[in-house]
Amino acid sequence: QVALSRTQVCGILREELFQGDAFHQSDTHIFIIMGASGDLAKKKIYPTIWWLFRDGLLPENTFIVGYARSRLTVADIRKQSEPFFKATPEEKLKLEDFFARNSYVAGQYDDAASYQRLNSHMNALHLGSQANRLFYLALPPTVYEAVTKNIHESCMSQIGWNRIIVEKPFGRDLQSSDRLSNHISSLFREDQIYRIDHYLGKEMVQNLMVLRFANRIFGPIWNRDNIACVILTFKEPFGTEGRGGYFDEFGIIRDVMQNHLLQMLCLVAMEKPASTNSDDVRDEKVKVLKCISEVQANNVVLGQYVGNPDGEGEATKGYLDDPTVPRGSTTATFAAVVLYVENERWDGVPFILRCGKALNERKAEVRLQFHDVAGDIFHQQCKRNELVIRVQPNEAVYTKMMTKKPGMFFNPEESELDLTYGNRYKNVKLPDAYERLILDVFCGSQMHFVRSDELREAWRIFTPLLHQIELEKPKPIPYIYGSRGPTEADELMKRVGFQYEGTYKWVNPHKL
């Protein structure tokens, strides 16, 4: 086992960053958080920038500027975001240094004079007029057009580079997404736009490419001749908990499936790229999406959770019991969808996408189930092999396979070949997804960000279904809070070829 401390991990990262040409360590950078008073800024962006600063992973002359409508001070920003920093008493001095680099400007999102004030403020910072500028839009999409237009007109660096990070949702359907994309691309070049999907920053999602293309053993079996089906799962054990009003506007397909799960599907299904260059990788992902037809209604199961009468606390409440959810809402909190990649490698292999709230566990994984062994000599005792990439929690890679049961006879039983990170790298604290992705933006690497043509294809696949749901308002199937979801989803999976045995229990190697 390799035991690495946080300091050692960050030392390795620093070495990698400083050796590259793309990370300008000594240049002045300004990180501007648009929507600095909001939840995302408070819980994710400010803490992430602090962790990067604490670990010495930001360029040395980096300033952080918050911008929002609320009249706040840096002290206010500190008060609301610091509880999420997880700072230790030993880091007190470092924390003071961090907040000394912070400033805040209040202004409207659609007022040109406010942006001119913001620009004057940035120019007044040390070497601010020639600094590289990175704008993070932690804002609702309704203000994107006004904000990007004003940034472009008043706040661009004339000497350094300018980059803009856009948070999902990128529209509600193909038409609104196209409108937003066309607007942003009329102001910024594609190499300046970073559409963030934080799932692409997760260690195991990034590991998929290495697993596939750096190991000879997987190449020959990664196709329709050997793989019976692919299941991509995202499960949350909690409901909307008072935030249903926002969720109800989008629903589970827009929230998770059309982005996170579809991105994971691309990494499983794509061909080997010409290189690890950002556009070479994204070219292959677009090719996969172009091979997927629009979702067919007979390959869809929609569910909505109801309270568990035997549960406790939140578990007793259904989705419609959330006071922020519109009365009688038919918005799905669970969806199972089957897609097919219609190309030579994957023809006929079902890709089953499942996601839901208020389920029995927290889990995100990719599961490849292989065909049955031909010419069975073990009297149907063999179960199908599976390769599982567990994204969260407890990152893991393992192969479910058959071995001989101890004893006199040739009785096979299920076991696993474990390729888990935790076994080799004991207690290594890896940077989280937002840390990686923000560092990628500083480096100018777009590999783990969504390109406009990729986004367009993703919406093309799901828009007809979303429009049909909005028009017909089908009643989702009720499922109990804390269950596996509607049984109809299991029946759909069985119908397209997935075999669920229920006889195997994964042993978490992190707890051995």
Rank of each mutant, 00 (worst) to 15 (best):
V306P: 00
S483L: 08
N277A: 12
I389E: 00
T316M: 14
K290L: 05
A274R: 14
V373S: 08
F378T: 06
L265Y: 02
A364T: 15
D310I: 09
Q369V: 08
M264V: 08
D310C: 13
D490E: 08
G348D: 08
G422F: 11
A269H: 03
N298A: 14
F370D: 03
T420K: 06
S275P: 03
Q263R: 00
M493I: 15
P350G: 01
W346H: 03
L455E: 05
E271S: 07
E271Y: 05
V366C: 13
W346A: 04
L492A: 06
D321A: 11
M402G: 05
N299G: 09
V349E: 00
N277D: 15
D310W: 12
V256H: 00
I389T: 05
R384H: 05
Q263F: 00
L261F: 05
K363W: 00
P350M: 00
K287F: 06
S329T: 13
E395M: 07
Q446H: 01
Q499D: 12
Q263Y: 03
Q381H: 12
K400M: 01
G311V: 10
L368W: 04
K473S: 12
S415V: 12
G307S: 12
A274K: 13
L492G: 01
P326M: 06
E271V: 04
T420I: 08
D321K: 08
A433G: 05
Y398S: 03
K426V: 11
A315Y: 14
N423D: 15
M257K: 04
Q392M: 08
I480F: 15
M401V: 14
V349P: 03
V428I: 10
M264Y: 00
M447S: 03
A269V: 06
D321G: 10
L439Q: 06
D347C: 08
N298L: 11
Y305W: 06
D490T: 11
R282L: 00
D283Q: 03
P476H: 00
K404A: 03
P273K: 02
Y340V: 09
D440S: 06
R390N: 15
N343W: 00
N427A: 09
M270F: 08
M447F: 00
V295H: 08
R436W: 01
F442Q: 09
V300N: 05
L262F: 10
F409T: 15
K290D: 08
N423V: 12
V256R: 04
C355E: 01
C355I: 04
M401H: 12
G407F: 02
F334R: 04
A374Q: 14
E365I: 06
Y479L: 03
N259M: 04
Y340W: 11
P412N: 12
L289W: 00
R424F: 05
K287M: 08
D376E: 12
C355F: 01
T276A: 15
N277F: 12
P323K: 13
K426E: 10
E361P: 01
P431F: 08
T463E: 07
Q296W: 11
G444C: 06
N277Q: 14
P323C: 13
P309A: 14
V301Q: 08
N394W: 10
N385T: 01
G313R: 11
G307V: 05
R484K: 04
V349M: 06
G348Y: 00
Y421A: 00
P309G: 11
A269C: 12
G407A: 09
G482A: 08
T331V: 07
Y340T: 13
Q369D: 02
D440P: 01
K473F: 11
G313F: 12
R367K: 01
D453W: 05
Y421T: 03
S275E: 05
E395R: 05
R345K: 11
E271I: 01
L439H: 12
E271C: 08
D418N: 07
Q296I: 11
A335W: 04
I352R: 02
M493Y: 12
V338I: 12
V338G: 09
L267S: 08
E342M: 11
A315L: 13
S415F: 04
P273V: 00
E454H: 04
L419P: 01
W506F: 07
P486F: 03
F370I: 07
R327A: 15
W459D: 01
R345F: 10
Y398N: 02
P431T: 09
I389P: 02
N394T: 08
P474I: 12
P478A: 11
Y340F: 13
G485T: 00
I469V: 14
L465M: 12
E472I: 09
P323Q: 11
M257I: 10
E416L: 00
C355Y: 01
S293W: 06
L417T: 08
E413H: 11
F498L: 13
E344Q: 12
N298E: 13
D418A: 08
V507E: 15
D255P: 02
N259I: 04
V391W: 03
R282M: 00
Y425K: 05
A315P: 13
G375M: 11
V286D: 07
T503D: 15
Y504F: 06
K429P: 14
L302C: 08
D418C: 06
Y305L: 02
G422W: 09
N308L: 08
G328D: 15
Q380V: 07
S278R: 07
H467K: 13
R436F: 03
R436H: 07
V397L: 10
H260Q: 00
N394A: 09
S293G: 12
V441C: 07
E416P: 02
P474F: 11
L492I: 15
L289V: 09
N411L: 06
D347N: 14
H379S: 14
V373I: 09
M401Q: 07
N308Y: 09
V341C: 12
R384C: 08
V496F: 12
K272L: 07
G485C: 05
R460S: 08
E271D: 09
K429T: 15
G318K: 06
P431D: 14
L465D: 05
V428G: 15
N423T: 15
I477Y: 14
V301A: 13
N427F: 10
M447I: 12
E491Q: 12
G482D: 05
L471G: 11
I438C: 08
L471A: 11
G303W: 05
P393N: 07
N298G: 14
N299D: 13
G328A: 10
L339F: 09
V268I: 13
T420E: 14
E284Y: 07
K317Y: 14
F334N: 03
L419N: 07
P350R: 03
L339E: 05
T403Q: 08
G444P: 02
Y479N: 01
